[in-house]
């Protein structure tokens, strides 16, 4: 920091134009990097759209409602109905499980746990956010699936009447429900990390005011912490949702893919966008590859919307929530 100060008194001898040229170069370099990012985003959409267009013009089925995926057949037919359904359902299951649990853990770390546990545990959660998804997939396939048998038949037995948990085909539980649970475990750390940060920023005065009025700890959390943290929770959940929607390899490992669209989430089968791309890519021909690009474009647009919405929610609430005070 002090290294440049001896030079400063001599500033008078220096022509101001020098520094202005340097400034200009540096600023344009920095701005160029920013613009490059925008270009990349546009290029992702552009290139995928270009290839998708080629595939869609060869498609003999309806892209949105067709179940089959046979783009390399002499008469190519492919559609995203099963993929879109599987992606959304598995992500929703993941959200239903992960969001409450993540809020619980975040509260545990920020308000419930004894200090001595809280810090290392927060650390641990952060570390687990870094576990690669292929490892989650491997664990899901070789450890979780054998352990899901009992739970699956149990749900089928007692909740089978709900249609959703009705198991019509027996077999290994390589189904959307297991995928949802695995995705929930995978997105838990990210949702926890973001909500924890928000809970930690709740003004101490709000909490103490609630406690001073005689609130129990839960009432304090309900009246002071949760309202303050709501935008943070929403955006954290949507970040998690974005991850769950785009998760590829863990789903590819766990799910046994087929082109059946069914709300019986305990029946093995189904598919997601990313999983389909990963599985079909290796043996895809030219048109097959372009068709996969088309499904990739749909996935890109969906995650774009989800993430964009999350960011807008944060940005809109930021001004008065004091979240970055």
């Amino acid at each position: 920091m002090t290294s440049s100060s001896p030079a400063a008194p001599r500033g008078r001898e220096r022509r101001p134009r020098d520094s202005r040229v340097g400034d200009k170069i540096f600023m344009n370099l920095a701005r160029g990097a920013g613009i490059l990012l925008l270009v990349i985003m546009a290029a992702i959409a552009g290139f995928l759209a270009w290839r998708s267009g080629m595939a869609l013009s060869n498609n003999n089925g309806n892209f949105l409602t067709t179940f089959e995926w046979t783009p390399d057949a002499p008469k190519p037919v492919f559609g995203i109905a099963v993929l879109a359904f599987g992606t959304i359902v598995s992500a929703l299951i993941a959200m239903v499980i992960a969001v409450p649990v993540a809020i619980g853990i975040a509260l545990f770390i920020s308000h419930y746990a004894p200090r001595r546990i809280a810090q290392p545990f927060a650390y641990l959660v952060d570390l687990l956010a870094a576990v690669p998804s292929i490892v989650y997939g491997l664990w899901g396939a070789l450890f979780l699936i054998p352990h899901m048998d009992g739970l699956t038949s149990w749900l089928n037995q007692y909740l089978g009447w709900t249609y959703l948990f009705d198991q019509t085909r027996t077999g290994t539980p390589r189904n959307l429900f297991t995928v949802g649970i695995l995705l929930a475990i995978m997105i838990l750390p990210i949702i926890t990390a973001v909500s924890r940060e928000v809970f930690r920023q709740v003004p101490r005065m709000h909490e103490e005011a609630a406690l001073a009025l005689g609130a129990t700890r839960w009432e304090m959390i309900r009246t002071a912490v949760l309202p303050f943290g709501r935008p943070g929770i929403i955006s954290a959940s949507m970040l998690g949702l974005g991850r769950a929607l785009g998760e590829t390899i863990a789903v590819a490992v766990v799910l046994s893919a087929n082109s059946v669209l069914s709300l019986h989430i305990l029946d093995a089968g189904g598919g997601t966008f990313a999983q389909n791309i990963a599985l079909k890519f290796a043996e895809a021909g030219n048109n097959g590859r372009d068709a996969l690009m088309a499904s990739g474009l749909v996935l890109f647009v969906i995650t774009l919307l989800v993430n964009g919405a999350a960011r807008l929610i944060i940005a809109r609430r930021k001004e008065y929530s004091g979240a970055n005070a």
């Binding site: 613009i35 985003m41 992702i44 974005g242 785009g246 590829t248 996935l299 993430n307 964009g308 960011r311």
Partner: peptide, 27 residues
Amino acid sequence: LAKAVTFFVDVMTGVPSIVAGLFILSL
């Protein structure tokens, strides 16, 4: 410009890895 870059950096964080792969493949 800065607002757009901020927004798209945030959105870019959520680009699924498989989509990034597809993009490089096509480009």
